[in-house]
Design a protein around this nucleic acid. Structure first.
Lengths: 198, 198
DNA sequence: CAATAATCATACCGCTAAGTATGATTTATG
DNA sequence: CATAAATCATACTTAGCGGTATGATTATTG
């Protein structure tokens, strides 16, 4: 049966989730192993039985967090109308990137990237890279762009503009503002694309 | 004469500049009052004579930093040709926002904004707000946009896209990449504007 | 039931940093 | 010169944190 193995898995997950919570709300440096142990309802010793050090636990937590994100803004790109596809993607993309979970993660990575660049780059190369390649394919197939990279970057930059504001304490934009922003961005992009296609 | 007053001012500035250096390179939490005192060639006691606490010194440092920024990307907006103006502004704007000083400041504010939102918002409302209003005026006068706010946001968003990448450890884009990016962004903007004006 | 592994509770070590205290030394002012 | 303020050098207090040690308690397995 291996009941002990199941419990080990449970404990490990409990610790990781507690760590995620504490790391995201406190930042790496202020998050203490005691707090994490408390939050996981576990002894500090037990934490150290599963993870050999704080930085080890932090890395494992980053890996664990990735499996949570089930947003999928990519689905919108399958819509038949290009404008619908882009607008749907844009709104979904922005909402995902303004979620408190994402903001906290970003904040954490930005803060820690100075001292641990390898974590930041290796981990986050998964997220943005996937987005970029998927969008590049869409821009090539559906918008007829031979060289989509610059356009992709401009497009994602426009969508992420709100994030910086929110990161610095500005109020979160309303759904209506987001929609208007995405519509304008789409218009900008499609207008130029149409010209290039002509 | 008041020679004592002059020295007080000097000491205060020395401490503030040391604090700026240490805060930017270490982050708020890792920056210690001992390091700052050393850097300022002053005793910790003296630091505490001028600033009552670490957070007090941090706030004063943020205020003091503002007076340094003498970038002026705005000058480019005076060029007669709209395209030249926008491209010049864009390149200068990006370079300014990729400077190590700006990146460090941004990193610091992002990291600390969770614990001290009032600092972040009150201080940085100076920078972006001025940019937005200046750009809005340009968009109205030179591009003929009656409602420039959304366009301004899209424009600055496109220009700041690189910053997020660099913040997360990606390599700094080359001057050529920046120029290409700005040219594409300008093209996008002007294409749409021309259409609206017709 | 007996043996083994995991966990618990708690205390401890070494270290660093915020902030205070003290007494000596310098510097500006009358 | 004499006074008073500012600064210096140094040491101290207090507290939190990373990580370890210990001995008791629980649960799993044969």
């Amino acid at each position: 049966m291996g009941k002990i193995e199941q419990n080990k898995e449970k404990k490990r997950r409990a610790i990781l989730e507690a760590a995620q919570h504490v790391f995201l709300s406190e930042g790496y440096i202020l998050a203490s192993m005691d707090k994490i142990a408390d939050q996981a309802q576990v002894t500090k010793q037990t934490v150290y039985r599963y993870f050999s050090s704080k930085i080890d636990l932090f890395q494992a937590t980053l890996m664990h967090m990735g499996s949570d994100s089930e947003d999928n803004f990519f689905d919108h790109l399958k819509k038949p109308d290009r404008k619908d596809a882009l607008e749907g993607f844009g709104v979904s993309f922005i909402h995902a990137h303004l979620s408190s979970n994402h903001l906290s993660t970003f904040r954490l990575l930005v803060a820690e990237s100075a001292k641990a660049p390898e974590i930041t780059s290796t981990f986050f190369s998964v997220g943005p890279n996937e987005t970029d390649t998927t969008l590049a394919a869409f821009f090539t197939d559906r918008l007829g762009l031979a060289e989509p990279d610059t356009a992709v970057r401009l497009w994602t930059s426009m969508l992420l503009g709100f994030r910086d504001c929110v990161l610095m304490g500005m109020p979160r934009p309303s759904d209506q503002q987001i929609e208007q922003h995405v519509k304008a961005a789409t218009e900008l992009l499609l207008a130029n694309t149409a010209k290039q296609q002509a």
